[in-house]
């Protein structure tokens, strides 16, 4: 059976069983490898995407349950045309290994869309589900505050 999904503004017909999680549709079928596999059980946040602007763990979202427009890290900005939040990540040299950062940015972008001026507590509440084994949390926090400032000025 074929499923129609929209990712980063492009519509795709996907011929896979409906229970295949969106994560593996993105990565192995559509070649959108920016969204990462970390745990497969929504325990790390590396696979975070947005569906209609809401941050979701794509490893727990079956293909047949995808309702709405999917945005992945590739849809946020590119190296030559980065979004403000990505620029903030670069300015703070946030990434170490970098593997979790796609998910971190997708989660943080959803936070900022809803709350343009988050407190540290707001950041804790929004971001605790996104694991980083390198321990980049202090710089993620700083980058979120910087991105919030930049987006207010814009």
């Amino acid at each position: 059976m074929s499923y129609k999904i929209t990712v980063n503004g492009t519509s795709y017909d996907v011929d896979l069983p409906g229970e295949v999680p969106l994560l593996w549709v993105l990565r192995d079928e559509l070649g959108l490898t920016g969204t990462k596999f970390g745990c497969g059980v929504a325990a790390c946040g590396a696979c975070t995407v947005q569906v209609d602007g809401i941050a979701q763990r794509s490893c727990q979202l079956p293909l047949d349950a995808v309702e709405g427009a999917v945005t992945t890290i590739e849809g946020v900005g590119t190296p030559d045309n980065m979004a403000a939040i990505q620029k903030a990540w670069v300015d703070h040299n946030v990434a170490q290994c970098g593997y979790c950062q796609s998910g971190q940015i997708m989660q943080a972008a959803a936070l900022l869309a809803e709350n343009p001026d988050p407190t540290d507590q707001d950041i804790d509440d929004a971001m605790y589900g996104n694991l980083c084994r390198c321990g980049t949390y202090p710089r993620i926090r700083a980058a979120i505050h910087s991105a919030a400032d930049a987006m207010k000025e814009a």
């Binding site: 992945t72 590119t78 190296p79 980065m82 990505q86 620029k87 670069v90 040299n93 946030v94």
Partner: peptide, 13 residues
Amino acid sequence: QPAKATGTAPFGI
């Protein structure tokens, strides 16, 4: 940093 902030850094996986 730019590649890692945009999901374009090529990890082995």
